[in-house]
Design a binder for these strands. Sequence first.
DNA 1: ATGTGTTTGGACTATACGTCCAAACTGGAT
DNA 2: ATCCAGTTTGGACGTATAGTCCAAACACAT
Lengths: 216, 216
Amino acid sequence: MEADGENTDDRVRMWAPVGQAVALLLGPYAEVVLHDPDTDRILAIWNSIGARGPGDPSLLGELDALDPSARDVFGPYEKVLADGRRLSSVSAVLRGPDRKAAAVLCVNLDRTPLEQAAAVLSAFGAPTTPRPEPLFEQDWTERVQHIVGTYVRECGRPLERLTRADRLAVLARLNEAKIFAVRRATPVVTAALRVSRSTLYGLLAELRAPSTKDNT
Amino acid sequence: MEADGENTDDRVRMWAPVGQAVALLLGPYAEVVLHDPDTDRILAIWNSIGARGPGDPSLLGELDALDPSARDVFGPYEKVLADGRRLSSVSAVLRGPDRKAAAVLCVNLDRTPLEQAAAVLSAFGAPTTPRPEPLFEQDWTERVQHIVGTYVRECGRPLERLTRADRLAVLARLNEAKIFAVRRATPVVTAALRVSRSTLYGLLAELRAPSTKDNT
DNA sequence: ATGTGTTTGGACTATACGTCCAAACTGGAT
DNA sequence: ATCCAGTTTGGACGTATAGTCCAAACACAT
């Protein structure tokens, strides 16, 4: 309810009811933000999760890709806050009569309370067996493809054009996911990353010892 | 409420209020059963999940190990019904003044509704990324211990006394769980199963080729 | 004791893992 | 084009792990 008063922009007058209604419906755990894509600042905000207010910068990297040819609704995608809360977010590009992007509406839903509730429910009468079967979340080889694919999508570059640092980053994720604790994983990774065995091990060595790269 | 009337056994008179109270508290999804460990039949039952009634056989393999030196409360452990419902069960050995096991009380809680609710909650506002990280459900080495431990508990024999067929069965489960796709898994398994490397590989070979054991 | 079936240590082979390095390659700067 | 720094690559090499094999030791019932 920080978005009323007399200062109001036309765009705020136009879309504020929407934001307010959504904020009311989704209760205290959903933040609704109206962004100005030109100045990259917040026009209005309801149920602010952080301490952000109107006029603050948007901090939305996602808004870079405001391609008018693309879809106007994005998400839901996941964000993780510094304090660990997990948000589900959707964004909508709002256009005026001239078809120009006039504002961007974002809804950020804090999933943590829901996840906690789910955890409580499924822990009720907890059995000794957490779950019978698979050690692997599906097939680890698909997991590799997925991690690589995700990274490629994130940075836009098409795999062949990945920089050394990119590959390093991907390897860090694969390593994080304990991929290399699996037997015969290396050939799969070299294939997925399109590098040779040598390069793979070189990069991995670098991951373990980030010191031995510069000076002295 | 099938456990009143005039036919009643002393034991039923003694423990029926407990069973009934628990059944009432836990609502329609918890079944409470009072077993006779001697005849292996049902003495009384509340909220019967199947079509079982008093006098029916207990079908409880778990009751074999009625060792008076051991603990009197078992579980919670998991059972899976033919129709796929997952139950959490606890059992208690009830003793009379002579310290002899007079009856066994089992509570079977149907977890499916809870799990469904949990699934609904955690799907709310579902993000595109199902979950970022770990390939392994925690630590695979604990997984081995757990699988072995579960088997031991199931058949009652204390690991050293496992038969060859038992070890074969455990290995089948470990194999099922793709444990051997993990690097350096064999030493962990041999340790957990208390067999030598040779035996391990021998049994594994047998798993792959069940034909090359008998005749022709 | 005797025999059958199983387990075991250890020798041995085959792969997979990881390191190393000289040669080839890449994308600029001259 | 030439040169250079950084990077990638194939392949040689050494080590570790994965499997195989077998004779001797063991367990246990007859």
